[in-house]
Design a binder for these strands. Structure first.
Lengths: 100, 100
DNA sequence: TTTTGATATCAATAATATTTCATATGAAAA
DNA sequence: TTTTCATATGAAATATTATTGATATCAAAA
């Protein structure tokens, strides 16, 4: 027998985006409000390129949005995702996560 | 520069366990109540060995528990994890997920 | 006490994701 | 307009994870 990969791949994929300590840290920081990449990296202390790659993963997943601000770029949680008025939580559409 | 892998690896690792469509499906089924492996696989339709591997990942993460029942094995959500009275949700310790 | 049914494990391979390194781009400052 | 600062991107190297296939285990039934 063999008929693999079943249901709900969409939700699993979204969770995959969160399932990385760097990206999770980025999201937790952004739950406090928008931040420039430099500020993110002050706390994360990563190789510049690596952080940039992770930010791309988050952008591609629609979890964050980026707007240019002078020579910097300002990141924030994407609109539908941000549930920070309801405590530290994130809406993935298929499910929501609460960190409290 | 290079001083990678920062904070919260524990939570990221738990999310990693969920971030797979098969395992997510297993958990969603178990939110309805305990099931034998055979019953899980009636709905999942996987290679026996593959399902067994995924169940091991879930066991190792402490998300499910398994008890032998005759020649079968009965799986259920691990005690602290099961929040199914509060709706379809799961407690990972570091955060909780709600699927509603 | 062998066979069968249900599940688990192990070793190998395949598929994916992360990290690094070098280089590119856009915007302001000199 | 060149240099510098902040960030992004592409390609290659690593690392991690998932899948397959063969075999082992454990319990009940024959």
């Amino acid at each position: 027998m063999s008929k693999n990969k079943p249901q709900n791949p969409a939700c699993a994929d979204k969770l995959k985006t969160l399932a990385d300590s760097t990206r999770l840290a980025v999201l937790e920081i952004l739950m406090e409000g928008p931040k420039h990449v430099t500020d993110l990296n002050t706390v994360l202390g990563l190789d510049q390129s690596l952080l940039s790659h992770h930010l791309k993963v988050l952008r591609d997943a629609g979890l964050v949005k980026a707007v240019r601000d002078g020579k910097a770029v300002l990141y924030s949680l994407a609109p539908g995702v941000d549930l920070s008025q309801t405590g530290k939580s994130i809406n993935l559409g298929c499910c929501q996560l609460n960190f409290d």
